[in-house]
Design a protein around this nucleic acid. Sequence first.
DNA 1: TTGAAAGCGCTAACAT
DNA 2: ATGTTAGCGCTTTCAA
Lengths: 351, 351
Amino acid sequence: MVHRKRVTLRDLAEHLNINTSTVSRALSEKSSEMISPDVVKRVRKAAREMGYKQNAAAYALKVGSTKTIGMIIPDLMNPVFPPIIRGIQSVLDQYGYTAFLAYSQNNEGTAHTEVERLISRGVDGIIYAAAFRKDSVVELCKSQGVPLVLVNRVVDQGDVDTVKVDDSLGIKMAVDHLLELGHRKIGFIAGPKDISVSYIRLRAFTRTMAEHDLEVEPHRIVEAHALSEAAGTQAMSVFLGQNPDATAVIASNDLIALGCFTALKQFGYSCPKRLSIVGFNNMPYLDWFATPLTTVSIPHFQMGERAAELLLKRIKSENLDYNEEVLLKPKLVIRDSTAPVIRPKQKSDAT
Amino acid sequence: MVHRKRVTLRDLAEHLNINTSTVSRALSEKSSEMISPDVVKRVRKAAREMGYKQNAAAYALKVGSTKTIGMIIPDLMNPVFPPIIRGIQSVLDQYGYTAFLAYSQNNEGTAHTEVERLISRGVDGIIYAAAFRKDSVVELCKSQGVPLVLVNRVVDQGDVDTVKVDDSLGIKMAVDHLLELGHRKIGFIAGPKDISVSYIRLRAFTRTMAEHDLEVEPHRIVEAHALSEAAGTQAMSVFLGQNPDATAVIASNDLIALGCFTALKQFGYSCPKRLSIVGFNNMPYLDWFATPLTTVSIPHFQMGERAAELLLKRIKSENLDYNEEVLLKPKLVIRDSTAPVIRPKQKSDAT
DNA sequence: TTGAAAGCGCTAACAT
DNA sequence: ATGTTAGCGCTTTCAA
């Protein structure tokens, strides 16, 4: 009993001996009011029985809205993104919207291509979580008149809606925590500085240190070539080579922090005994780790929700003059990868 | 410079003083052959310059194919699914297909609703990873003539394309491993038995044990109410209460295995000293855990790839008579949660 | 090689 | 309250 053909409005209309427009109106929540209750009932019954499903393509072509949005993230494998996606979808669902998922692979060109595909698909808007500090996607969306919301990462230009976490505050919390534990020789394993979060976090690090009259010498900072575990290992090896005296490092994100552990092990050092490590993001399952990572927790799910809300708002009324920036607060989660500094016995402070 | 209106074929046609059909043909890879090279070049140039993007809705309405498929998984937060999704998308991308992502929440009703939404969206096919042993989604797709491929989980009916891992073999590997380590009093923390994988894995357990002339008494098996950490903890507590003598358990998946650890800790027992634990799935980051979990590894990414290939094949030629079942091989990954059984000193074997 | 025209399924003026 | 009709943007048959 395989229907090869989908049931259309006309099928229903012919079946009921009424006009397609009547059927259309009877089925629509809004305009069913202008149809006699009896007809509405009969139409809906027939629709159910015959298995009618609205043809989204026809609707989109007619009305101009696909009730569809696009999400672009760097990589699904990064555990940060699943909860963000869920957050987005949880509000989308409430409004009958559906989302396409695309990946930038942390590559601006790829992102650009994906946006073009999404636009061709007719998405009503785009949520983008992969902006470089300068990013052509913003231009593209603007020129095509497609509403855009940035989530988690931002661009240098100011005129775009954004939902992000207060990275600077997060880093400040991490630094303060380490300082309280007595650390002074603190390093920073940064992410690529063309990625906005990397840049912001690094700047927050030096600034916070400066506020405590602690100057950060250049060799205390090493830049990983990606926000990944492997890149973290590599960068941390370099760091340890040039910082035998460091007692703590802050990593630009958890994945890099994991890489730091690996490098530490290769050097035969232990954490937190020899060196404390702080991450960023609070990825899932950290509590289970051999050395549970102290990290800055950010409200992923909520970020997704807010981004979706913002986008939907923008889609409804596109001629809002001002852009919004939603700033969410991070939290420090203290686990076992940070400990009080162990001072070498009675070593003079003055060199 | 905000275009509120998208550039259409007609815009191009008018701009170039030719017919829309010529433009359409010039733009299409297939039919551009019948157009003079010169015109093709001019059309494509204009398209690029004016920012023309095909209207997917119009195309879909005309041609009947949206070049779109739907994926339905239980939950994005379960770390098993991201790699499967990536696998699917990696082959979809090559054929210009895009995927919608929907969730069943392990609830058949939800899955059913989502499938209806996807069908309304006009998807050319569906990949479904959430089948209960009996599942109305299969019927629904069949009745609507929508190609369907099941991934990872299966239904009792046989007439549907499926990509799955050889769960029975995986469990057999786990059992054999424990037997080699000297374990005999082995328990099984099953998942809900209306979920296909749970059922299959449990059956494989008792069968493998039987092959070794080991009878599994009923109290050795406890069923968790979900394939989740919390459910695992609960089930394992029950198990430990009624099996003080057990030396090993196999969990229906890794999440349940994690729950087992928690329960074990609550009882003041240690793993693997007092009790060995084996999981299933090899979720990410297990190597980092305090007690790295021995588990059955399955090729998630590859499963996704194969599922997508199968679906695309089915979409191309829907009247294939026979269904395919792709069976992938699992691998046992031995880590630290399993160890040789410690026999109580010189206790007589005979009771 | 190109043009003309129909029509995919739907909604929304505009009639009645 | 319901019917008529046009048209969204595209592909494709048929004609030239």
